[in-house]
């Protein structure tokens, strides 16, 4: 017994809500990697094109956007070639959207496993984020290749000096997606209605975020102010500023993003942690 005290765990009814054990999550890092790998294995099993879908989907979507929003609706893309603009915006947005939707069903989709064995539950959303992140990175390479092509033609002017900013942009986008996802997931252990709203909601959210249009498209006024207050506006515009050399990064957007991140990330993890302890009794 004495030599086992390293593994002593005490389970009581009343654990403080901030008993977040990130060290334990780290110990299960191999599980995170395996879960991520599993997602890839499963998604491309029994498909003809396999991993090619990672680049095919955003490419096809961007073509549709080019036709519908670019040509038919005539939305401006701030002088950037339309396909490139949409491809670039879509890759970051779908990373965010994927994080939200995948994680929003964490508890319900894994109820069976969670009900049988204990492991730090956060490993599951983290692996979903990694899965979406890796897909995003692959798409990013495609975007960069296209940018290089357009740079030679003089059509875009990226800002290479700002490239280090890409890292925090990606991190904050992923973490915000993860937080919103697990928050929804925590609530849906009780009310499943919300889960049906997720894909609809995220779609709606896309139209109030500068994804298919730049902020500069809007003239000053209440709508522009609201758009600038959207916490996803800053990462989106910043991302395009670096890669395409065009974007509207205002301090108000950065502040809104910062405040949102500082509140929602810890809050969602705490609620998730709270729910994970007993959720199996309610599903």
């Amino acid at each position: 017994m004495k030599n086992n005290t390293a593994y002593h765990v005490r389970i009581t009814a009343d654990q403080s809500p901030i008993s977040l054990n990130l060290r334990e999550v780290w110990k299960y890092r191999d599980l995170i990697m395996l879960l991520t790998k599993r997602s890839f294995t499963l998604i491309y099993k029994q498909t003809i094109l396999g991993p090619a879908w990672v680049v095919l989907t955003p490419f096809l979507t961007s073509i549709v956007y080019t036709v519908v929003f670019g040509n038919m609706a005539g939305l401006s893309t701030a002088g950037v070639p339309k396909l490139l603009f949409y491809l670039c915006s879509h890759s970051l947005w779908s990373f965010f959207a994927e994080c939200v939707t995948r994680n929003s069903s964490t508890f319900i989709a894994n109820a069976n496993v969670f009900g049988k064995v204990y492991f730090p539950r956060l490993t599951v959303p983290i692996s979903s984020m990694l899965f979406a992140g890796i897909q995003f990175l692959v798409q990013l390479f495609m975007v960069i290749a296209l940018i290089v092509f357009h740079v030679f033609q003089g059509a875009v002017h990226p800002r290479p000096e700002l490239i280090p900013l890409i890292v925090p942009v990606i991190l904050i986008t992923g973490l915000m997606g993860l937080s919103m996802g697990i928050l929804i997931s925590s609530v849906t252990t009780k009310y499943r209605d919300l889960q049906l709203l997720v894909s609809f909601g995220i779609h709606l959210f896309m139209y109030v975020t500068p994804v298919i249009f730049p902020v500069s498209q809007l003239s000053d006024g209440i709508w522009k102010t609201l758009l600038l207050l959207n916490p996803m506006t800053a990462p989106m515009e910043l991302f395009r500023t670096v890669l395409l050399g065009t974007g509207t990064v205002r301090s108000v957007s950065l502040l809104s993003n910062g405040i949102f991140a500082v509140i929602i990330i810890p809050l969602s993890v705490l609620i998730f942690n709270r729910v994970e302890r007993n959720f199996i009794d309610t599903v």
């Binding site: 086992n4 765990v9 005490r10 389970i11 009814a13 064995v117 199996i280």
Partner: peptide, 20 residues
Amino acid sequence: KLISRVTTPSAGEIDLYGRV
């Protein structure tokens, strides 16, 4: 379920010395 930490007790304490 309680001992394997899938759920938590409503009252009382459980001490585990070792990995489960």
